[in-house]
Amino acid sequence: MLAPLPWGREVIEGILPHRDPFVWVSRIVAIEPGASIEGELDVPTDLDIFRGHFPDHPVLPGVIIMEALAQAASIAVLQSPELRGCIGFLTGIDGAKFRRQVVPGDTVTLKATIVKSSRRLVVADVEASVDGEVCATATQKYVLAPKE
């Protein structure tokens, strides 16, 4: 049985193997297990990464946005009963486009639609946005492996 939404850090860490400082999903607000998900990432103003990227114009790196989207998609996939207990490894990003910068204090909406899913391979169309404005889109691919 699924916990009531929204899901916070405790539920997210019960699904994903990631831990601080590399959990890039703050909460899950909607999910259709194995099919789609909507989550959010609160971008802290004091995130250490901004000391170097860039000190005078802090911007969340695109690779972190892609990782946040992959983590959200993985949560949706790993809720399918036959895939619980697996780890999703990002193996490809196709057609990535970055349209808006993400800055400290933003809340990024993370959406993923699972296009293909098998016991071994997952393909998801993903989109990140802030206040309804699209930041990034891509098609991501993941390979699933048992945790052991």
Rank of each mutant, 00 (worst) to 15 (best):
L2S: 02
L2D: 04
E10Y: 01
I12Q: 00
I12K: 00
E13Q: 09
L16Y: 02
L16P: 01
P17W: 07
P17K: 01
P17S: 06
H18F: 05
H18W: 10
H18T: 03
R19S: 08
F22K: 14
V25Y: 08
V25G: 05
S26K: 08
R27I: 08
I28S: 03
A30W: 04
I31N: 02
E32Q: 13
P33H: 06
A35G: 05
A35K: 14
S36A: 15
I37K: 06
I37V: 14
E38A: 13
E40Y: 09
E40W: 07
E40A: 11
L41K: 09
T45L: 14
D46I: 09
L47E: 12
L47M: 12
D48H: 15
I49T: 10
I49M: 12
G52M: 10
H53T: 10
F54W: 13
F54R: 08
F54K: 12
D56Q: 15
H57Q: 13
H57G: 10
P58E: 06
P58K: 07
V59Q: 04
P61T: 07
P61S: 09
P61I: 01
G62W: 07
V63T: 07
V63M: 11
I65Q: 08
I65S: 07
I65D: 03
M66H: 00
A70S: 05
A70D: 04
S74P: 01
I75E: 01
V77P: 02
V77K: 01
S80E: 13
S80L: 10
P81S: 09
L83D: 09
L83Y: 11
L83M: 10
R84S: 11
C86N: 11
I87M: 08
I87W: 03
G88Y: 05
L90N: 08
L90V: 09
D94S: 14
F98N: 09
Q101G: 06
V102T: 09
V102H: 04
P104H: 04
P104T: 06
P104G: 05
P104Y: 08
G105T: 01
T107C: 03
T107W: 00
T107K: 06
T109K: 03
A112T: 03
T113K: 13
K116A: 14
S117C: 07
S118L: 00
R119C: 03
R119V: 03
R119M: 14
R119H: 11
V123L: 08
V123H: 03
V126P: 03
V126T: 09
E127S: 13
A128H: 04
S129D: 10
G132F: 10
E133D: 15
V134I: 15
A136C: 15
T137C: 12
T137L: 08
T139E: 10
Q140F: 04
K141W: 01
Y142V: 00
V143I: 07
V143F: 12
L144T: 00
A145E: 11
A145I: 02
A145C: 02
